[in-house]
């Protein structure tokens, strides 16, 4: 078991190094630093100013280690990313780390309730629909799920803002406050939208898992033993269905930290999602780079978590 975890960790490290290489190729070789500088300083910036800017941001060094040795951009890129020294933003020279620190709180305030409510709601709904499989309730449930899946998130957001925020005036359309007593009013609407937007797909996925499990031989055995349908669902089916569901769920946990791009920027929540959107709009490559790197770090971590939780739930993995 321990070697298994350690092996997953090693594999994760290799993947992170791969991600860094990919980012380097993408952001340093495929993009011209002059371009980045001009976008930051304006089209008409003087060559000298651009050169100075490039020197400040470390864009003037040789790309590859066989040219520049330890001073090359590749080595520097790996060194800084691996030591979490993200440097300054390309656009306004603010330290990226500070921004990240400020952004995590609001992001979590949005994503955690969204995640918990969404998960519970979709599992309960899926169990309900699966319990009535092959009846009208089931067919209606699936139909609604497909309808919900076909709607763009943008439409969810715009619709909710217009109907609930503007017409009904239940909650403010956008904004944020650090004080939790006030903040919940701002968060209610985005959480609602976030839950609604992912509900359709999740319910359908979980339902499929449940329905497939209910067709298995051990369920028949349980029935032959005299188990009630409720007990079969809760004790037998749910435990087995947890295995695929866990993969789905645990992997989502790390992304709670990176926040939601769309919801945050639409609802004016100053989290990491908003930060990223600002970076995109301002052509801030260094921030974007950092976000992708952090995202994949979290993903790799989530994958290892999934593997461990797999082993915890499934005795076949745990005991092999």
């Amino acid at each position: 078991m321990l070697t298994y975890v350690v092996r997953r960790l090693l594999h994760g490290c290799v993947v992170v190094l791969g991600v860094l290489l990919f980012l380097f190729l993408l952001f340093f070789t495929l993009t011209d630093p002059d371009d980045i500088a001009r976008r930051a300083l304006g089209e008409k910036a003087l060559p000298a100013v651009i050169a100075q800017w490039k020197a400040n941001h470390g864009y003037d060094r040789p790309l590859w280690p066989w040219r520049g040795g330890r001073d090359s951009m590749l080595v520097e890129h790996y060194r800084r990313m691996l030591t979490f020294d993200f440097g300054r933003s390309d656009t306004d020279d603010a330290p990226i780390v500070d921004r990240l620190r400020h952004g995590v709180g609001p992001s979590l305030a949005l994503t955690v309730p969204m995640f918990v409510i969404g998960l519970l709601l979709s599992i309960v709904l899926a169990l309900f629909v699966a319990f009535f499989r092959e009846t009208y309730i089931d067919r209606m449930g699936v139909l609604l799920a497909v309808l919900a899946m076909s709607l763009s998130v943008l439409l969810y957001i715009i619709g909710a803002q217009y109907v609930i925020g503007k017409l009904l005036r239940w909650f403010p359309i956008s904004g944020f406050d650090a004080d939790p007593r006030v903040a919940w009013r701002f968060l209610a609407l985005p959480v609602l939208v976030g839950v609604a937007a992912s509900l359709g797909g999740d319910v359908r996925f979980y339902r499929t898992v449940f329905v497939e499990e209910t067709g298995r031989d051990y369920v028949r055995t349980a029935r032959a033993k005299g188990c009630g349908e409720g007990r079969i669902m809760w004790v037998h089916v749910l435990r087995n269905a947890m295995i695929p569901i866990l993969t789905h769920v645990v992997l989502a946990v790390p992304f709670l930290f990176t926040g939601s791009l769309l919801l945050e920027s639409f609802f004016g929540i100053p989290g990491l999602g908003s930060l990223t959107v600002d970076a995109i709009n301002g052509n801030d490559f260094s921030t974007l780079r950092t976000m992708v790197y952090l995202g994949s770090l979290l993903f790799v971590g989530g994958q290892i978590l999934t593997d461990i939780s797999y082993a915890l739930v499934d005795p076949r993995v745990r005991l092999s």
Partner: peptide, 20 residues
Amino acid sequence: RGAEIAMIFQEPMTSLNPVL
């Protein structure tokens, strides 16, 4: 079921709940 009439199946491999 189970109390008065019990049943055993062909496939012992899949007829037991794997996680219990």
